[in-house]
Design a protein around this nucleic acid. Structure first.
Lengths: 240, 240
DNA sequence: CGTCATATTGACTTTAGTCAATAGAAGTGG
DNA sequence: CCACTTCTATTGACTAAAGTCAATATGACG
């Protein structure tokens, strides 16, 4: 998988050459998807999971009245729907926010990896746990943070995650999400997102235009968001 | 573990006698905790995970201004913090809502289970995926549902989960949560929870008093909440 | 150049939060 | 069993945050 996943998992444990090799060989194919396309549809029962090699994807659900809630963002190296290996049918869809290169990993090969490499089983557990930790952090935001804190918090999270995979340059990174997208992430209306962004711009916390987000002072934005990166487990907290 | 966990996991795959036996033998001890006590504290790095045998527990985080967000509820049979096996330190605390009997499973024994019984690894992945599916459902509620829909949705979820473990009698079940607790689950103020509950009572959707919740017509409450139990994966969707 | 999505602004409405008072209930020590 | 404390529940009056609707830019793109 062009090493993207192996690099991420090695934050948890150092992979043996055989394990890395097996991960490399796992995808059946690699495919590009454009913004607006769907990787997986709610209600379907995929026979493979997907690893994002580049671009951005998000998981979401559309309610009966058309409202959408985005529940996760994924960037290079993320195992987008590992859970579909054990939990079907899908209870949400996966969409593409920015031109994405995607590796398809058939579930039978996931099963093979688990049985052949017990340590990978643990690494996959770790990856799912990390995913869940991010869900929890977003829940805290949705339940208890103000509009601009939610946005600021999201920007901080993305900054660190992007940096981790080498996508931050000159304190900024590509940011393909529209204001309606941000609204559906933060549980707000797009009008309110617009106003909150403007206030953050006025305060010099962010520079956002032409699909690029610059954070002049991440420490200050973190303070505004009361952001604590602990839940991202950026440091190698290696068990083995 | 008095079979509570084995029963839950067997919703995913049928366990062999050896696997069941190994699960039974996994806890190092069993202990009771009273309402208000803490099972795990944010920031700690436990050397064991916990299975709830009876009672009710919840995972939560307290923010700097004292606001609390509850991110999960656990009932009998739930593996409360399996993730602490792979992800430390804890990014949230675990509290007790109602007198809880808890089995402690040392992490080294979890590791043993994973390596000795590869199918249990998959079952644990399933359990974590189920946990995450519930997180996502709560996120949708926090982001996009109205106050009384959030509460109604929670009540529906609990009804099905309680029924699954045989704790529903005469359309009702023990409900130890206070209105402030409900507020911290649903991201509302306790005053607003109070008013929403009263409106639901007036509509005959729920009967709630003396720490007991009765749902006269689960179909009607489900309609009000736009509740779809799919994410709970109640049916045996057995892979093996 | 026209089209479509996105961004911005103003005016107004709605939902939910805050503050404060009162009432009930449950638990505790004597 | 009683007095006392401490949660918990309820209500009213007022405030604030965020949503809605609608109009107008702005910008990318074929």
């Amino acid at each position: 998988m062009a090493n993207a996943l192996a690099r991420k998992l090695s934050r948890y444990l150092s992979l043996s050459p055989e394990e890395t090799q097996a991960l490399e060989a796992a995808p059946s194919r690699i495919q590009d998807y454009r913004r607006g396309e769907q990787l997986v549809r709610e209600g379907s029962s995929p026979d493979h999971s997907m690893v994002l090699l580049s671009g951005m994807a998000f998981r979401y659900r559309v309610m009966t009245d058309g409202a959408r809630q985005i529940m996760a963002l994924h960037i290079a190296g993320d195992f987008v729907d590992l859970h579909s290996f054990v939990l079907k049918p899908m209870d949400h869809s996966v969409g593409v926010a920015a031109l994405a290169q995607v590796a398809h990993v058939p579930h039978y090969r996931v099963a093979r990896l688990l049985s052949d490499f017990p340590r990978l089983a643990q690494a996959f557990l770790w990856d799912m746990a990390l995913d869940a930790a991010t869900f929890r952090e977003w829940m805290v935001g949705l339940g208890r943070r103000s509009a601009s804190q939610r946005l600021a918090h999201l920007f901080c999270e993305l900054y660190y995650r992007m940096e981790m995979v080498g996508l931050v340059a000159r304190q900024g990174f590509d940011f393909p999400l529209s204001q309606p997208d941000l609204a559906d992430i933060s549980g707000l209306s797009s009008v309110h997102v617009n106003r909150s962004l403007q206030s953050m711009r006025r305060d010099g916390l962010i520079v956002l235009n032409k699909r690029r987000l610059v954070i002049p002072d991440i420490a200050e934005l973190s303070r505004a968001a009361e952001f604590d990166p602990a839940y991202l487990h950026l440091l190698s907290d290696r068990a083995c």
